[in-house]
Computed example of a mutant assay.
Amino acid sequence: MPRTTRWVVRLLHPFLMRITRRDWRGAEKLPTGGYVLAPNHISHLDPILISHFMVDHGVTPRFLAKDTLFDVKVVGGILRGAEQIPVYRSTVGAAESLAAATAAVEAGQVVTIYPEGTITRDPALWPMSGRTGAVRVALASGRPLVPLAQWGAQDILWPYSKRFRFLPRKTIHVRVGDPVDLSDLEGQELTEKLLHEATDRLVDALTALVGEIRGELPAGPRVDVHTLEKPRTNYSPPTNTSTEEH
């Protein structure tokens, strides 16, 4: 574990233990060696809370993070010191980011990639359709693609808001699923059709795991991540999304 990561863990771990309850299940499904961890995205707090789960299960957190974050004072230095991988917006830059992620996974590291690429815009916070980065890295490296559903971060910090709600203490739910079966796609040309088929399998698995936590399934069609508008920043959480109600 990088020195910077150890420092951040020592700083945040006691705080997270105080402000959260933890309902973590399925950690025994985490593979050994390198793999791609693919969580749903519901809050700006997700990386911290998912890292809490990872560290407590002996996994060094390493994420693909937006390149603009590396330009922020202090934050950028922490990200670089913790060996996070920047994602660049250009086509060439994106390819380089995925190549770096693939190399890390092949070297036995765990790399976390959000399939949606951004916080969900679904009004009820269900997973949106995915981008293909996570499956590209899994197929290129030949290593497992592991879905991780999480729920509860939105109760502390609602998507695109700046208001924290630490009290009463919130429950952070995590469910690790079985690795997504991509065996029938291995060795094939990575066409857009194949990549989207694999990504659909991943998002279906994530949605089922989130549904397991929430005790319900989506009522409407899946939001298409490729047709998103500017995120809303002034809306309040609907009453039926709280972890404390399930």
Rank of each mutant, 00 (worst) to 15 (best):
E83R: 14
L195M: 09
P168I: 02
T118P: 13
P144I: 00
T68R: 11
L148K: 12
Q84L: 02
T120Y: 02
P159E: 09
A103C: 00
P168R: 07
I213G: 08
V55P: 02
E192H: 13
D122P: 03
K29F: 05
P61I: 01
V55A: 12
R80E: 10
G26N: 11
V92C: 00
G177T: 02
L228Y: 08
V210Q: 12
V59S: 06
R62K: 15
W151C: 13
L190M: 13
T191Y: 05
D200A: 12
V110T: 14
V137I: 04
W24H: 15
L148C: 11
A153V: 00
N240S: 10
G93T: 08
W7K: 13
Q188R: 15
S51R: 08
V135A: 09
G142I: 00
R80C: 00
T207Q: 11
L69I: 00
L11A: 15
D122S: 06
Q109T: 05
T239W: 06
R22H: 13
G220T: 13
G177S: 07
E245F: 03
G34T: 01
P159V: 03
T32E: 15
L12V: 13
S236F: 01
G108D: 08
A65I: 08
S43R: 09
L182T: 04
W24L: 12
L69V: 01
T243C: 12
F166D: 05
L194G: 07
T227A: 14
G130T: 03
M17T: 09
G177R: 06
L69E: 03
A104H: 04
L11N: 07
I119H: 07
A104F: 01
T120P: 07
L228W: 05
E197L: 06
K230G: 04
G76K: 01
V180Y: 08
S161Y: 01
Y88S: 13
V174L: 15
T118N: 14
L182W: 08
I172V: 11
Y35H: 14
W7T: 14
R25M: 09
I50T: 12
T239L: 10
H173N: 15
L11S: 14
G93Y: 04
L157E: 10
P123L: 01
G77F: 03
P179T: 04
N234L: 02
P159D: 12
V225A: 15
G220W: 03
G81F: 01
G220D: 15
W7G: 09
K193T: 14
S43V: 01
R121L: 06
Y88M: 04
T207K: 10
R18A: 14
P218E: 10
E189T: 14
I172M: 11
K162I: 02
M17W: 06
T132F: 05
F70M: 03
V72D: 02
H44M: 12
H52G: 02
H246D: 09
D56N: 15
N240Y: 03
K162L: 12
R201I: 05
P14T: 03
T207L: 07
L206I: 03
A149N: 12
A100P: 01
G26K: 11
A101T: 05
R232K: 14
E212Q: 14
V137Q: 07
D181Y: 04
R80I: 00
L145V: 10
T132C: 10
H196Y: 02
D184L: 03
G220C: 06
V223Q: 06
